[in-house]
Design a protein around this nucleic acid. Structure first.
Length: 355
DNA sequence: AAACCGGGGCA
DNA sequence: TGCCCAGGTTT
């Protein structure tokens, strides 16, 4: 989609559906836009409104903010979090006040101020100063990553650079302030991280992620440095003939379709399961915990050893569990950690029998 | 329980 | 240059 058409659709959507009655969209000036942008970096629109109004009532202009005690600024920030930003706000107000209250009018000079980066500078200059400058906040990153089907994590420097290029290509020469607000609004309300409302998006026609059915895959998440850990219990349940209970796993997911030991998130789940199946167990012995690592997570599991007290009513249903003797287990194609666990178990059993 | 957010600060 | 951080909200 050519940039002119993209801009026209975005601006038409903004005219019809965009929010235009937010407090910082009234009496627009660099000071109000700056404060609102800093607040909006960390908090949703709905909660920022009250903070912004109270902040403006107490610090109506950059001079009043510069002259205030830091403690009072922090008090008005209390509850927003990221308190370093309130300190930066105060420091920057003092620098701007020292410049006769005039904000720098270039991205370079603006972003030299504490707490103002390239994107915030672009927002201030486009919204409050009528300049044609691009932004790239989290919302716009998501919109553009999807629109151009940009793979990779947007926080990666190469991906960020790519997205800045795209952002510049689409930024209009006219009505840039409205366009900036529209893009942030679109990302916040339609092109959301989960459950995006593509069916009412003004630029669905040109959206590559939509065309390729990648909307839910893009933007890609931050690569995990440490793999997540899942914890569960495996039940080694033995009957009086020393057979072990095995279940067939569901066809999808890890070890799909393989035989395995019954697994539980916790002991309560185990109890419920026993009740459901009419199994009466002695109190299970927990063996030392073990770890099995997959490419995408670590599985920390605790084997529980228990003995069945009551005889089994053998129900021959399609997905009923089976009881297997030691030797049969090995021919069954078990997941490696389960196989190891059972081998270990039988070795110990054997050892016990022989004293 | 973990991702997210834009910029600062440090190796 | 790249990594970690803050801290409240969302998923």
């Amino acid at each position: 989609m050519p940039p002119e058409q993209f801009q026209q659709k975005i601006l038409a959507w903004f005219d019809e559906h965009g929010r235009k009655d937010l407090p910082w969209q009234q009496d627009i000036n660099p000071y109000r836009v700056w404060v609102s942008e800093i607040m909006l970096q960390q908090t949703q629109v709905a909660s920022v409104i009250d903070y912004f109004n109270r902040f403006m009532a107490r610090f109506p202009n950059v001079r009043s903010l510069a002259d205030a005690e830091l403690d009072e600024v922090l008090q008005h920030w209390a509850g927003l979090g990221y308190y370093a930003r309130a300190r930066n706000l105060h420091k920057t107000a003092q620098r701007v006040a020292a410049n006769q209250g005039r904000f720098p009018q270039t991205v370079e000079d603006l972003s030299a101020l504490p707490g103002i980066g390239r994107s915030t500078a672009g927002a201030i200059l486009s919204i409050a100063c009528g300049q044609s400058q691009s932004i790239l906040d989290g919302n716009v990153k998501r919109v553009l990553a999807r629109f151009h089907a940009v793979h990779g994590w947007p926080g990666d420097s190469k991906v960020t650079a790519q997205l800045w290029t795209i952002s510049s290509q689409y930024t209009p020469g006219q009505r840039t302030g409205d366009y900036t607000q529209a893009m942030m609004d679109l990302g916040a309300t339609l092109c959301t991280r989960s459950k995006p409302r593509c069916e009412i998006c003004p630029v669905i026609n040109g959206c590559q992620a939509y065309r390729l059915d990648l909307v839910n895959q893009l933007p890609e998440p931050k690569p995990r440095k440490t793999l997540p850990v899942k914890r569960l219990l495996f039940l080694v349940l033995q009957d009086k003939q020393k057979r072990i209970l095995l279940e067939r796993r569901p066809p999808a997911g890890i070890w799909g379709g393989l035989w395995s030991l019954p697994e539980f998130a916790d002991r309560q789940q185990l109890q419920d399961w026993c009740l459901q199946h009419g199994y009466q167990l002695n109190e299970p012995d927990a063996l030392p915990g073990l770890r099995h690592s997959f490419s995408h997570y670590h599985l920390d599991y605790t084997p529980l050893l228990a003995t069945l007290q009551n005889p089994i009513n053998c129900v021959m249903e399609a997905d009923s569990p089976v009881w297997y003797k030691a030797n049969d287990v090995y021919s069954l194609g078990l997941p490696a950690p389960i196989k190891r666990l059972l081998q270990q178990h039988y070795l110990e059993e054997h050892y016990d029998e022989n004293g």
